[in-house]
């Protein structure tokens, strides 16, 4: 014997577990005084190259930095980033197309957060899936390279909308690929009005100072004045 089906209200976020974990990570980072930056982009936009330059420059200026780097299958990125002398851990996700808070938490085991000023998390190259997962970061940077075309923000509005700053990379190739810079700015503003946009070439170094300056200003606005410096 059974009764009629009844509707039971649940009202909970499907990603509640991830959100709770991300919140506790954020508290840990805050308590340890670590500023956490995540990088998202499509594959091949230059996350690893920019990160390698960023780590090297921040270390040269006496900052204590580290990186977690997500990849579907290889550990190549970690090997590249290790050249910067920063502690680097690869998170090989297997078939999973994004990082989540649990992967970040597990990867932090063995690291003393209080010995760090800044932690970078490079997500798996993907402009769709990472947008749903909070990693406990303070700043989400979305990269788009000039070779991808200026309409990328319109194709992936969600990830641009969840990001805090957009960085246009490979500017040294802009002319060769007839990149419409004004159009790119317009498209970014259309999906995320007011978002700061930076442009750089990690290869030539053009725009790198402005990018690092931006990161440092964001760190300082979290009242970590003096902890991080850029020369």
């Amino acid at each position: 014997m059974s009764s009629q089906p009844r509707l039971v209200e649940v009202r909970q976020n499907v990603l509640k577990q991830n959100d709770l974990l991300a919140r506790s990570l954020r508290q840990r980072f805050e308590a340890a005084g670590v500023f956490v930056v995540s990088l998202v982009s499509s594959p091949g936009s230059g996350k690893t190259t920019l990160l390698e330059k960023t780590l090297t420059r921040l270390i040269d200026n006496g900052n204590r930095v580290a990186a977690l780097v997500g990849d579907l299958a290889t550990e190549n990125d970690a090997a590249r980033l290790a050249r910067s002398q920063a502690p680097v851990k690869q998170i090989v996700t297997g078939t999973v197309c994004h990082l989540d808070a649990d992967m970040v938490q597990r990867s932090l085991e063995g690291w003393e957060l209080k010995d760090l000023d800044c932690l970078f998390i490079e997500n798996v190259g993907n402009l769709v899936c990472p947008s749903s997962y909070d990693l406990g970061e303070n700043l989400r940077v979305v990269l788009m390279s000039v070779t991808e075309g200026e309409d990328k923000p319109l194709k992936y509005p969600t990830i641009f909308n969840t990001a805090d700053v957009a960085v246009i990379t490979k500017m040294d190739l802009a002319e060769a690929v007839e990149f419409d810079l004004a159009g790119a700015y317009e498209n970014i503003q259309s999906v995320r009005p007011g978002m700061e946009v930076l442009q750089l070439s990690a290869k030539t170094g053009d725009g790198l100072n402005e990018y690092l300056g931006f990161l440092v200003s964001r760190m300082e606005s979290r009242s970590l004045v003096g902890k991080v410096s850029v020369g």
Binding site: S3, P5, L7, V10, N13, V14, L15, S132, P193, M195
Partner: peptide, 25 residues
């Protein structure tokens, strides 16, 4: 006017379930 102030639209929410209870015989 431009606005980034999202009020709704990020939801991924389990709202309710329809269940059938088993009554003890």
């Amino acid at each position: 006017a431009l606005s980034s102030d999202v009020v709704r639209g990020r939801e991924l929410e389990l709202v309710a379930i329809e269940i059938e209870e088993v009554e003890e015989i």
